[in-house]
């Protein structure tokens, strides 16, 4: 029997190489594309009538999602500032949620279970917060390294601590998403492997668990997407408000 982590392995489907960098299309990327296309299609369907005042069912689902994200952005970033970042935050939420959910279909792949991907996103968000901070406050932004109310004598100690805590944020952000997705899929893989390898008399039990855990995974997919975007909002809000 294969290792339960075996299905995380990726093999190029369409090999592409640009200037020595491997950019092959593999299963994970295909699954992500399918998910994105589906979501975009749903969005277009929802907003097809140009956003009527009396919404259709699909439209109201997306409206609830939008309002939810709007509330989140307004709470953590602020009402006026939040409008600028709403599209980004909403897209991020939708993207991560889609990637989380598409992986629950047996045979597909969750790209967010790759630390490289979540790390890239977290790092990108980290850079984005730095850019926003410097654009908004200029050199004054560096004062984020000194928490308010700290005695002068503590500053040499606080600055490296703050730097480490700031650097740790994107890492924990990416590790959390990656770990949750990997753990969920590993559990599913183990249970499914058990179900397949056992005889039919006992095999239905792990299979039933697979179904239940799959339901749980849907909840986790939502929760993790929510946590990732919430924390992104918090980080952006932090650099905008500057304490």
């Amino acid at each position: 029997m294969d290792s339960p982590l075996h299905h995380f392995e990726l093999h190029p489907i369409i090999p592409i190489s640009v200037m020595g960098v491997d950019l092959s299309i593999n299963k994970a990327i295909l699954a992500m594309w399918i998910g994105c296309a589906l979501v975009f299609g749903l969005f277009m369907l929802a907003g097809k009538k140009g956003g009527s005042v009396v919404p259709s069912k699909l439209q109201s689902i997306f409206e609830i999602a939008m309002e939810f994200i709007q509330g989140m952005v307004e709470e953590f970033i602020g009402k006026e500032e939040g409008k600028k970042y709403f599209s980004f935050i909403a897209s991020l939420f939708i993207f991560i949620l889609t990637c989380n959910l598409i992986g629950l279909i047996p045979g597909s792949y969750t790209i967010t279970s790759q630390l490289a991907v979540t790390g890239a996103f977290a790092f990108g968000i980290f850079i984005l917060t730095l850019v926003i901070g410097f654009a908004k406050h200029g050199m004054h932004f560096l004062s984020i390294l000194v928490p308010p109310g700290v005695p002068k004598i503590m500053i040499p100690l606080m600055v490296p601590i703050e730097i480490i805590s700031m650097l740790a944020r994107p890492i924990s952000l990416s590790v959390r998403l990656f770990a949750n997705m990997t753990a969920g899929h590993t559990v599913l893989a183990v249970l499914f492997g058990l179900a397949m390898s056992a005889s039919i008399w006992i095999g239905w039990m792990p299979f039933g668990f697979t179904v239940i855990i799959n339901g749980l995974e849907i909840a986790i997919a939502f929760i993790q997407a929510y946590i990732f975007t919430t924390l992104t909002c918090v980080y952006i809000g932090d650099v905008i408000k500057l304490h």
Binding site: P160, I161, E162, I163, I164, S165, A168, R169, S172
Partner: peptide, 10 residues
């Protein structure tokens, strides 16, 4: 030491 302090802060 600094890292754990930063962790506590977070």
């Amino acid at each position: 030491v600094l890292g754990s302090a930063g962790g506590m802060l977070n």
